[in-house]
């Protein structure tokens, strides 16, 4: 039996091709090549049409505005890492399963591999690089070091963002709250017990206990 190239028949849905599909079909129109179009589709002013050549958007990351041209299919994590050189945010699975790419968007945890960059426009994005303020580490960062809540450190930025967001919304979490807050963050090195300790300690510090 001889078969030609069946690589595209791999099992499983590739998240990227799925997103690509969404990116284009939701625009709902054939698009011109190369150029950049912002048009109003059939009377619905809320629908923005973007060509595959890309659109210029403004992203607010860690309080700073960046204007850049992105393709509709580009994910937020790709743009953060490859365009803005904010490589602190990691990719572990690229499909929403590991939390390595966790950032905070308008106060919510977001797996940035599942958000298109164009959808992040107009939102406030916080990444690991933005936690340090005037040379002072965030209490959660300090606590992660003190309690050794990291080993290889690859999951750490995502783990810290989830933890920080927990404390933003709940300054006095209990152990169950902490476990719940980082349940989407996988750590293959198995540092969880110290993550729990570190976050609980940071919350106490926050309150000056």
């Amino acid at each position: 039996m001889t078969k030609k190239n069946q690589l595209t028949k791999e099992s499983g849905l590739s998240r990227r091709s799925f997103l690509k599909g969404v990116g284009l079909t939701s625009a709902g129109l054939a698009v011109t090549s190369g150029g950049e179009i912002f048009a109003e589709a059939s009377g619905d002013a809320s629908v923005k049409i973007i060509s595959p050549g890309g659109a210029t958007i403004t992203l607010e990351v860690n309080g700073k505005k960046h204007q850049l041209k992105v393709e509709p299919r580009e994910t937020l994590v790709e743009v953060l890492r490859d365009r803005l050189h904010l490589t602190g945010t990691k990719i572990g699975c690229d499909r929403g399963a590991c939390g390595a790419c966790t950032v905070i968007v308008d106060g919510k945890n977001v797996t940035s591999c599942l958000m298109l960059a164009i959808d992040a426009e107009g939102k406030s994005i916080e990444t690991i690089e933005g936690l340090e303020k005037e040379g002072e580490l965030h209490p959660v960062q300090k606590s992660f070091i003190e309690y050794d809540a990291l080993q290889c450190g690859f999951c750490t930025p995502g783990m810290i963002m989830s933890s920080k967001n927990l404390l933003d919304h709940n300054p006095s979490p209990n152990l169950a709250d902490v476990k719940h807050a980082v349940r989407g963050n996988l750590c293959r090195c198995g540092t969880y017990p110290k993550v729990f300790q570190a976050v609980l300690a940071a919350s106490k510090q926050n309150k000056g206990e």
Partner: peptide
């Protein structure tokens, strides 16, 4: 003793092979 590379790892400054550009 806390890790020498703790700060680099909690701030995202640590460069892994994956971060090389």
């Amino acid at each position: 003793t806390t890790r020498l590379d703790g700060v680099a790892k909690v701030t995202g400054a640590a460069k892994y092979t994956f971060d090389m550009r």
